[in-house]
Deep mutational scan, measured.
Amino acid sequence: MEVRTIKVFTTVDNINLHTQVVDMSMTYGQQFGPTYLDGADVTKIKPHNSHEGKTFYVLPNDDTLRVEAFEYYHTTDPSFLGRYMSALNHTKKWKYPQVNGLTSIKWADNNCYLATALLTLQQIELKFNPPALQDAYYRARAGEAANFCALILAYCNKTVGELGDVRETMSYLFQHANLDSCKRVLNVVCKTCGQQQTTLKGVEAVMYMGTLSYEQFKKGVQIPCTCGKQATKYLVQQESPFVMMSAPPAQYELKHGTFTCASEYTGNYQCGHYKHITSKETLYCIDGALLTKSSEYKGPITDVFYKENSYTTTIK
C-alpha cells in the first residue's frame, strides 16, 4: 500500500517557510505537534488534498525554529505562539472599519479597549522592536488589523473576551517599542525636605499616572512627601515624541487643539466601556464603527496623549 502524501510549508514567522512532505494517514499533531492554519487549530486533523502548498504555523520545537521565533517575536515564552494563534482565530472574524481616516474595530468580545489602543497607536510616533509587531502594525494602518490585535493580546497575556485596560495595554506595548531616546527629568520640591531631581528613561519617561493635564504637570502637581507634608512635583525636561497622561476616570474637559487623542471610560472596574476622542479640525468621538463630532467635550476621561518633541522648564 502506497503512502499518500502532500507537500506543505511549516513556519513560526510566515517569513521562513520549511518544506514538509506530510503523510495523509496521520494527523498534523502526530507529525508536527500543535499546528495552526489561519489561526485555526488543526492539530487533530489529517492532511487533505486542499492543504497542498498551504502554510501551517507550528510551535518552535527545534533550534532553527526557536531562533526564527525569537528573532521575529522577541520572546522565548513557549506558550506565546499558541496564544497568538488562538487569538487570531477570533480577531480574523472582527470587522476593521476605516473611521475618520483611522483603522478602528467594530465592537465584539469586549474589544473596546483594543480599538482605543489601536486608534491611539496610529496617532503617536512609535516604532516597535519585534519585527512581528512592526509588520502587523503597518498592515493594521492599511486596514488589516487582525494579526496586530492578536499579537497585542498575546504580548499582554490576554484572551479574547476578557476586559482590558488601555493604560495597561499601552504599557505592555511600550515595553516592546523603541523608547531608548526618551528621557524625563522631574523635580520634587518640599518646604521641609528641599528639592530632589529624578531622571527617568524609556517607558517611565512617557507615562504618568495622577493627572490628565500635561500643562498642569509642567506647572506642578501636589504629591505627598515622605515627611508627610505636601510637596510639588513638576516637569523639568521632556525628550520624547509623545507623552501619555493618565488618571482614574473623572469628568474632564478636553479643549480642541490642546491634545492629540484621549480615552474615555464609562462604567466601573468590573464592567465598563471605552471610547476614543481625537482632536482634528474639530473633536471626534470614535466608538467602534461609530463616529460623532463636537466642538467641545466633557466626560469621564482616563488617558490623554500629547505630541511632544523637546521641553525644558522655565521655572527657576
Rank of each mutant, 00 (worst) to 15 (best):
L59N: 14
N187D: 07
A142G: 11
I152C: 07
G210R: 02
N100P: 04
Y252W: 14
E296C: 14
P78N: 10
L121W: 04
I315C: 14
G29S: 08
P224F: 10
Y269N: 15
D180M: 08
M207Q: 08
Y155D: 04
C227K: 01
Y73G: 03
Q30D: 12
F148L: 12
L291K: 10
E68Y: 05
Q175M: 08
S279M: 07
C112M: 03
K229R: 14
K255Y: 07
D135T: 08
Y73I: 02
L37C: 11
L81M: 11
I301P: 00
S294M: 15
M244R: 02
D135I: 08
Y297G: 02
Y265S: 00
E2S: 09
G272N: 00
Y269C: 15
Q196N: 11
K54P: 05
Q216G: 07
Q237N: 09
F174D: 03
T116H: 06
P60H: 07
E281R: 04
V304K: 00
G101M: 02
D303C: 03
N61G: 14
E204I: 00
A154C: 06
Q30C: 15
Y284G: 06
S279C: 09
N61K: 12
G288C: 01
F9R: 10
D38K: 09
T282W: 08
T75P: 05
T159H: 15
C225E: 04
S25K: 13
T192C: 10
C227Y: 01
T19Q: 08
E52T: 11
T120C: 14
T43H: 14
R141Y: 06
K201R: 15
T91H: 04
R4E: 12
A247C: 09
V304N: 02
V58Y: 05
N16H: 12
N14T: 09
Q98M: 14
N100K: 13
Y84D: 04
V166N: 03
D13T: 09
V206L: 04
Y96N: 06
I286H: 03
D41T: 11
D180C: 07
G161V: 04
Q20K: 14
F128V: 02
T292I: 08
K255S: 09
Y28A: 05
Q237M: 11
P60R: 06
D41H: 09
R83A: 09
E125T: 08
K229F: 09
T19L: 12
G164W: 05
R83L: 10
Y265C: 00
S279L: 00
D135R: 08
Q222W: 06
T226K: 15
L81C: 09
Y234Q: 08
L200Q: 15
N89I: 14
V12P: 07
Y234A: 06
I301C: 01
H74N: 08
K218N: 01
M209P: 02
R139Q: 13
F174M: 07
I105L: 06
I15M: 10
A117E: 03
D41F: 06
I124H: 01
V243I: 10
H74A: 06
T211D: 07
G39R: 06
G194N: 01
A140E: 05
E281F: 01
R83E: 03
G202V: 01
E253W: 07
Y274C: 05
F305P: 00
K275Q: 07
Y172G: 09
C271H: 12
Y284R: 00
A108G: 05
V203A: 12
C193I: 03
D77Y: 04
A142R: 13
Y36A: 04
K106V: 14
I277V: 11
L88Y: 15
S263D: 05
A250V: 10
I124T: 02
Q222G: 08
I286F: 10
L151P: 05
A205S: 08
H18N: 09
T211A: 07
H18E: 10
S263E: 00
T312F: 12
Y137D: 04
Q238K: 01
D287H: 00
V236N: 02
I301L: 07
L235C: 08
L291E: 15
K201M: 10
C149V: 14
K201Y: 15
S171H: 15
T312V: 14
S104K: 03
H90G: 11
T11V: 05
T55V: 12
Y306Q: 03
G202P: 01
G194F: 05
K280R: 14
M170I: 08
P248L: 15
D41S: 12
P47T: 04
P248H: 11
K280E: 11
L179F: 07
Q270L: 10
A247F: 01
K275D: 00
S279E: 01
F259P: 03
G29A: 08
Y214H: 03
M26L: 10
Y137T: 03
L102D: 05
K298T: 10
N187W: 08
T282Q: 12
D13G: 06
V166T: 06
Y28D: 05
V203Y: 15
G101Y: 04
K219A: 13
V185K: 06
E253P: 07
C193Y: 02
P224H: 12
K316G: 15
E168R: 12
A132H: 04
K229T: 10
S246T: 00
V166D: 02
T91V: 08
V99M: 15
R66Q: 12
M244C: 04
V166Q: 04
F217T: 05
